[in-house]
Design a protein around this nucleic acid. Structure first.
Lengths: 208, 208
DNA sequence: ATAGTCGAGTGGTCTGACCACCATATCTAA
DNA sequence: TTAGATATGGTGGTCAGACCACTCGACTAT
């Protein structure tokens, strides 16, 4: 391998730097195509597997996008994947689990408030349909109910983080509110009573 | 390869999930040793190169630490490397900024409220010290200020997620509130005025 | 012209081979 | 007996080469 190596740098880290340099030199922009793996391998005098290790890491960081049979492309940086991956590992840590439920509830409350201005009669009916559908257990109703609300927040990051927590909380317990909570919330939407949302969540808070 | 593959998931992504599961099942903690690459390869029925792609990506994210000749170890998540790598690559894309900032602000607001009941005079003075310390720029003050508040929430998960976003938002801009915001918040703590916290954040909201 | 085929290029994956490094067990010499 | 040298096995680091699956465009037969 010939990639710059000052102390004991691993090849894939050197490749990473070289790619960065390459992007800079060629002034590549979002959407542009990077050289193929084989080409990079040859140009940098590194094994293809090492090149791939660098590319895979970049991919996980959301820096590049890979299209099978086509090539590797620079992508607009989106923090989502990264945050998602990291969050999934953070959640794994037992010491952080205690706060899971209360954090999840915070997100649910804020989502309910964010969605407030974007919810109309039709949406409310949709929500009511969910909580009236007795073919599902309440756990699933909870999930659908809030999925719908989060969708209305139009904040993808917020939604993804909530979804992760929802997933993990299922390995625990108490993953929903009392039955009438949901009805109360839709009532507030109906009455356009923004203020009371905060109070509703406080009343039904599940402590941990 | 046998790692769970629903749609068209790449092997290394499946390996990533499996490793996460493994950490969970065995309740591995920071500093614990992961199975060797060869062992993982065999257990997950994936090539060693695929396993390595997953591990290298995790390494770049700072989730694991690799010691030549010894093995792979779970590491406390340290954002440094991640941020460093990203910073050297980031093409600032305004369109992705929105979700991150608003979500971060939600967490800050809720933390401020959660900490409310656990903040005493001494803590307030500590906060004031931070915002009066002009040897730091306001960005750093913001960081310390809220670090302190999040600590008081005693919710590790919430804190970690916020920290994550804080790190990422630094690759962008606008990572703090107007100067007097912080003073106002400590005043509310002083006056034991819980209600106004919500309003304060609303007034100082950084739109996106 | 159009539809179908084929091949070159690309990423995706696996295997097997070495090397470098580390810890530990083992042997050797004092 | 014991301190130091050495052998060994396990681990990560890296490479080369082989296939496979997919995409796209050029070529061909209709």
């Amino acid at each position: 391998m010939a990639v710059s190596m000052s102390p004991k740098q691993k090849v894939y880290q050197g490749v990473l730097q070289e790619i960065r340099k390459l992007i800079d030199d060629h002034k590549l922009k979002t959407g542009d195509k990077l050289p193929s793996e084989r080409e990079l391998s040859e140009k940098l005098k590194a094994g293809r597997s090492s090149v791939r290790e660098a590319l895979r890491a970049m991919e996980l960081l959301g820096l590049i996008e890979t299209r099978h049979g086509e090539g590797t492309f620079l992508s607009a940086y989106k923090p989502f994947q990264t945050v998602e991956v990291l969050a999934s590992f953070i959640l794994q840590d037992n010491s952080t689990r205690s706060g899971l439920l209360s954090t999840k509830q915070i997100l649910e409350k804020e989502a309910a408030k964010l969605a407030f201005g974007r919810i109309n009669k039709d949406h409310i009916n949709e929500l009511i349909n969910i909580i009236d559908d007795n073919s599902m257990d309440i756990t699933k109703q909870h999930r659908l109910f809030f999925s719908y609300i989060f969708e209305k927040t139009e904040n993808l990051l917020l939604s993804k983080i909530w979804w992760l927590m929802e997933e993990y909380s299922h390995t625990m317990n108490k993953v929903h509110y009392p039955k009438n909570f949901y009805r109360n919330l839709t009532d507030l939407y109906n009455k356009k009573d923004y203020q009371s949302i905060e109070l509703l969540f406080k009343d039904f808070a599940i402590l941990n």
